[in-house]
Design a protein around this nucleic acid. Structure first.
Lengths: 113, 113
DNA sequence: GGTCGATACCTTGTACCGCAAGGTATCGAG
DNA sequence: CTCGATACCTTGCGGTACAAGGTATCGACC
């Protein structure tokens, strides 16, 4: 595994939350499942991060949840986007575009005269 | 001006520090000057953010500083990249590339089957 | 029917960093 | 000599990722 630079930990802030919303756009997901995908993408370092985050999303009415039993294993809590969540995601896509462009330009300036 | 979403505040974390290093790659800069450029780029909301950040960079030997008098106005503290700072910047460019790619892919998935 | 690993949920304590507000000092203009 | 711009810095607050640890369910195996 690559050595986790502390800078990455800071980068994940703010982005992680909306990445969860983006994943939910493709359909309902449950927490443990999200952990696996986000960890693989390098956007999540610990399971302990996601549950408080999901609680916040629920508190703010960006997602709605339903318990559902699993064919094998304990029951799961599924998360689905609300209308408010969809709006927040769309707003974030804009913000992310502007932000990442700004960072990109500062990191790799064109006119180096 | 666009409404400042709180998500942006979190996004700036981690990126801001290395954006400062990137700006210094083009030559010495002083704090008040950096504030102007980073604010314009939307990467900084308050002057109060930059000085503790610069202190950290100095503490960690990523930058070196020299006081210099100004033709008009108070003296300025100029910041310059150290070798260690240059290395950190290069490492961050890699990390940023991977990170922003991951976020981009989750935000805008290709196979929407 | 008892144990064990995997699955799946959640909580607590810590550290870190951006932000707003406020403070100090220097310089030129009126 | 006051006032605005420049230029530096500090303090208190809030939000969030992380590590570590905790609880419960299920299937498999003995």
């Amino acid at each position: 595994m690559a050595v986790e630079s502390p800078a990455l930990t800071q980068l994940r802030r703010g982005a992680l939350e909306h990445c969860v919303l983006a994943l939910l756009e493709g359909g309902e997901r449950y927490g443990y499942d999200l952990v696996a995908e986000l960890s693989e993408a390098g956007l999540l370092a610990s399971e302990g991060t996601i549950y408080p985050l999901l609680s916040r999303l629920r508190r703010d009415d960006l997602v709605a949840t339903t318990w559902r039993e699993s064919a094998s294993g304990p029951a799961r809590r599924y998360y689905a986007l609300t209308v408010k969540g969809t709006d927040a995601l769309e707003a974030f896509r804009d913000a992310w575009g502007q932000f990442s462009t700004s960072v990109q330009q500062i990191l790799h300036p064109k006119g180096t005269s």
